[in-house]
């Protein structure tokens, strides 16, 4: 397994947001994490990327215990996150935002290759290369956040609601891009409200409810699971 969480609990002050969750992501997989608002999906992402310390449990990445490793060093190990709310650097241009994604890397030729790759995945970003991040539309910022996360050439890409704020046509597109990124060799852990899309694209998935994993299985299994259908797939 590339990533493994064992009995991870996480506290926000006195509020316990994760109640001992265990999950794993294998090399080359797309794994989806779905759940209602406030279930703890983003919190799980923050625990993995190191933005929030975990209270108990262990996180192993690529065979190394990274539970206590600083967030910036996890990036060097190969973990990259496109955070909830996008987290664009508002005063930097699109180009500079993408360069920030490659902050830990030195090989200019490879960085340029990856810039080209991101611009191919998101032509809109190429058109807006010089625009200041803070003036980009919400959807454009979302593309920028995903593109920026790719710029570190991660082994594991954490995507927190990449379809948020995108027009229906673009939602299709962003999921296509996630699959494409995955086929190019990047392992993906995907948090989504858009459970239908996420489950149909993911190899495996976990369902999170109030800080606990209540179900897991292949994407196809969960798509047809009656309780998942009821709770997350809506009436349509």
């Amino acid at each position: 397994m590339l990533l493994e969480l064992k009995d991870v609990t996480l506290m926000y002050g006195r509020i316990q947001a994760l109640h001992g969750i265990s999950l794993s992501v294998g090399q080359g997989e797309i794994v989806a994490l779905i759940g209602a608002n406030g279930a703890g999906k983003s919190t799980t992402m923050r625990a993995i990327s190191g933005l929030r310390p975990v209270a108990q449990g262990t996180i192993t990445f690529n065979g190394e215990d990274i539970t206590k490793l600083r967030a910036d060093l996890r990036v060097v190990r190969g973990v990259s996150q496109s955070p909830e709310g996008r987290g664009i650097f508002p005063g930097m241009s699109v180009r500079e935002n993408l360069e920030m994604g490659a902050y830990t890397r030195r090989n200019r030729a490879e960085i340029n290759e990856d810039l080209d790759r991101v611009f191919t995945l998101f032509p809109r970003l190429k058109e807006r290369e010089k625009q200041v991040g803070g003036t980009m539309s919400g959807g454009e910022q979302q593309m920028l956040a995903v593109g920026r996360a790719l710029m570190s050439r991660p082994k594991l890409l954490l995507l927190d609601e990449p379809s948020m704020g995108l027009a229906p046509m673009l939602i299709q597109q962003i999921f296509d891009i996630v699959v494409e990124i995955n086929q190019q060799g990047t392992t993906v852990l995907l948090v989504e409200q858009n459970a239908q899309q996420a489950l149909s694209r993911a190899h495996r998935a976990y369902v999170l409810e109030t800080g606990e994993i209540v179900k897991s299985g292949t994407g196809a299994e969960l798509l047809t699971d009656p309780s998942v259908k009821d709770a997350y797939l809506g009436v349509a």
Partner: peptide, 20 residues
């Protein structure tokens, strides 16, 4: 650029690998 990143969004800067 790392300095500006931390100034603009410390969490995102950490996610880019900036040592705060």
């Amino acid at each position: 650029r790392g300095i500006r990143a931390v100034a603009q969004n410390p969490d995102s800067a950490a996610l880019m690998g900036v040592n705060k």
